[in-house]
C-alpha cells in the first residue's frame, strides 16, 4: 500500500508546486505579453497607414481594420498571405479610399524564405515600391506590372505581390463607408430588446445598450443562408447569454417558404435559444421540415457571435 501511496503523493505535491509557480509567473507576464502584442500590432498599422490621430477600428478580427479620423473613413488596412518559396508571405497593406496603396509592410517574423534571396521581400526598397500603386499596377514588371522583382527570387517576389493585389481585390468593398440607412429593417427592432436603454452603434452590425453609463447588453446582426436566400438574425446578448432573438419577417424580406421555413420564426422555436450562450446554439434541435433554414439560423447566431469577439 505504501508503495502506491508515497509515489502518488510525491508526484501530486511536485505537480501542485509546479503549477502554482507557473500560475504566478503567468499572472505576472501575461498582461505584458498581451500589451506587447497590441503595441506591435498598432506599430504595424501605423507604419502602413500613418495618420496623426487616426483610429484603427477592427472590422474583421486580425485581418481587416478601417482607418478613421473624426468619424471619416480614410482607408483600410488588411493582412493577407500567399504561399512563397518556403513559407507563407504575410503582407500588411494600407489602402486609401481612392484605392491607392499608402504603405506595405512585410514582417520578418515567421517568414522562412531563403536568407539573402526570398527574405529580401522584407527589405525597405521592395516594400517602398508599392506606395501609391493601384490594384492593376501591383504586378512584377515581368508579369506586365510596375514592380521590380528581387534578383533570383521571382517566386517570393511574385507571392508577395500577389498577396497585396488579391487582398486589395478582396477587401475593396470596404473602402467605401457603408450607407447607414435609417430605413434598414432592423433599426426599429433594436430598441425592442432593451426598452429603456440607449442603443449605441459600435462597429459593423453591432450595438451596445447603455443606460446611465452602464452597459446592459449588446445586440448583433448576423446573416444566414437559408433555403430561399439570405436572411438576417438579430441577437441580443446579456451577461454572455442570449436574451432575445429576432428573425427578419417576410415583410422585411425573409425569403423562406411560408409553409416550412417560416416555422423558425415561431416563438416555440426561438425560445430554445433564450438563456443559453450563443456559442452553444449549434446544439439546438432543428425544426422538422425546415432543417436547412434552422441550420442557417444557428450558424448565423454562432458566427455572428464569433465576429463580434464573443462579447
Amino acid at each position: 500500500m505504501k508503495d502506491i501511496l508515497k509515489p502518488t503523493f510525491v508526484l501530486l505535491i511536485t505537480a501542485m508546486v509546479a503549477s502554482a509557480l507557473l500560475a504566478v509567473v503567468y499572472e505576472k507576464t501575461s498582461p505584458e505579453i498581451e500589451k506587447r502584442a497590441k503595441e506591435k500590432l498598432l506599430d504595424n498599422l501605423k507604419t502602413v497607414f500613418p495618420v496623426e490621430g487616426a483610429e484603427y477600428k477592427p472590422i474583421i478580427k486580425d485581418t481587416l481594420w478601417c482607418v478613421e479620423k473624426d468619424g471619416k473613413r480614410l482607408g483600410i488596412i488588411f493582412v493577407n498571405g500567399m504561399r512563397g518559396y518556403a513559407s507563407v508571405i504575410k503582407v500588411i497593406v494600407g489602402v486609401d479610399t481612392t484605392g491607392k496603396i499608402v504603405g506595405v509592410h512585410i514582417p520578418k517574423e515567421g517568414l522562412s524564405e531563403t536568407p539573402g534571396l526570398g527574405m529580401k521581400v522584407t527589405e525597405p526598397w521592395f516594400m517602398e515600391q508599392f506606395k501609391g500603386k493601384r490594384e492593376e499596377e501591383v504586378k512584377l514588371k515581368k508579369d506586365g506590372g510596375t514592380l521590380d522583382a528581387i534578383t533570383a527570387a521571382t517566386i517570393s517576389s511574385r507571392a508577395a505581390t500577389n498577396a497585396v493585389r488579391s487582398g486589395m481585390e478582396k477587401y475593396k468593398k470596404y473602402l467605401k463607408e457603408e450607407e447607414k440607412s435609417e430605413n434598414e429593417w432592423y433599426h426599429k427592432h433594436l430598441s425592442e430588446f432593451f426598452p429603456d436603454a440607449e442603443i449605441e452603434e459600435c462597429g459593423n452590425n453591432f450595438w451596445v445598450a447603455v443606460k446611465d453609463n452602464e452597459t446592459l447588453g449588446s445586440i448583433y446582426l448576423s446573416y444566414g443562408e437559408g433555403y430561399g436566400g439570405k436572411f438576417g438574425v438579430l441577437v441580443a446578448v446579456k451577461d454572455g447569454k442570449i436574451k432575445d432573438i429576432y428573425i427578419q419577417s417576410p415583410d422585411e424580406g425573409f425569403p423562406e417558404t411560408q409553409e416550412f421555413g417560416c416555422k423558425v420564426r415561431e416563438h416555440t422555436y426561438l425560445k430554445k435559444f433564450i438563456g443559453i450562450s450563443p456559442d452553444e446554439a449549434g446544439k439546438i434541435d432543428d425544426v422538422t421540415g425546415a432543417t436547412i433554414t434552422s441550420e442557417a439560423v444557428k450558424k448565423a447566431v454562432v458566427s455572428g457571435y464569433k465576429r463580434v469577439g464573443g462579447e
Binding site: 531563403t114 539573402g116 534571396l117 534578383t151 533570383a152 527570387a153
Partner: peptide
C-alpha cells in the same frame, strides 16, 4: 551545391 546555396543570386540570376 555549395556555391549554389551560398550565392544563388549569381548562380540563378
Amino acid at each position: 551545391a555549395f556555391v549554389m546555396a551560398s550565392w544563388p543570386q549569381i548562380m540563378t540570376g
